[in-house]
Amino acid sequence: MHELVQRLLDGDRRAVARIITLIENNAQDKEQLLRELFPHTGRAFVLGITGSPGAGKSSLADSLTSYYRKQGLTIGVIAVDPTSPFTGGAILGDRIRMQEHALDKGVFIRSMGTRGSLGGLARATKEAIKALDAYGRDIILVETVGVGQSELDIMATADTTMVVLNPGTGDSIQTIKAGIMEIADIFVVNKCDRDGADKMAAEVSAMLDLGHGQNPNWRPPVMKTSTLDGRGIPELVEAVSKHREFAVSSGLFANRRAQQLKAEVTETVEHYLKELLWQKAGASGEMDKLLEDAAQRKLDPYTIARRILAVFDG
C-alpha cells in the first residue's frame, strides 16, 4: 500500500493534504492512490453548495459546519474558486469565512482552483472528495460558483445540492438561464436580513409551480437564511436531513451513486483509451505525413481517423 494512503487511513491530515495535491497535479502516483482509497469510500454524505459569486456560500458552509460539529460530526470542505484563464493563477479566499474552524481537528478545509483543464476540474474535485471520504469525514461540503458545465458536473456528484440566491439581485431569472434550477434539491435565499427575501422566495416558488425541478416526487424547499444572525440555519439543516431521508427511501440516493460509478468507469476507460491511442499513434510518427496529405486535399480527415485507429488492429 502507498505510504500516504496508510497514513491517511491512520488519520494523518498531512497525508490527506498531500494526496489531494498529487491528485490536482496529476502526479504519477495518482492512480495507485485512488485505487487504494476506493475501498474506503462511500460513507461520507456529500453536500453541494453552489450559487453566484458572493451569495454567501462560504459563510453558509461555515454556519453549517458549526451546526454539524455540535452534533459531533466531522467535516471536510472543498472550496473551488476560478483560476484565471490568462495567468493560470488564482486567489482562493473561501477560508476567510471559515477561520473559526481552523484549529478544529474535526474540520479539514481545502481550497482548489479550477485550473481550467477540460473536464479536469470535475474530475479532480470528485477525486479530492474521495480522499476526504476515505479519511473518514462524515459530511463533505463542496462549494463552487454556479457557472459552467464542469461545476454542474461536480454538483451532480453531490448527494444533496443547495443553490444559494440573494434577495433583490435578479438571481432567480439568471438561475433558469444557467440551468441550475434542475440541480437544486434545496433553494437557499441567503442574506434574508436584507429587504426582498420574501419576494425572492416567492419568485422561486412560482417557478417551481411551473414545473421546474428535477424530481416529480421532490419539490425543492425554499429556505431563508442569514449567516449574520443565524436565522434559518437550523431549518436549513432540517431541510437537508429531509432531502437525505427522501433520497434514501425513494432510491434516488442509490440510483445517483450507481450512475456516478458508471460515469466514473466510462470516463476512466475513455481517458485511458485516449492516452493509449496517442501513445501508439504518436510513436509511429505517421500523423504529420497524413496531415500533410490532408492539407493538399489528397486525404480527408475521416480516412485519416480510420487509419490512425488502425493502430489497434491485430
Binding site: T87, G89, I91, L92, G93, R95
Partner: peptide, 9 residues
C-alpha cells in the same frame, strides 16, 4: 496570482 500561482488568503 498574476505569476500563475495559487494563493490561499
Amino acid at each position: 496570482r498574476d505569476a500563475g500561482m495559487e494563493v490561499i488568503y
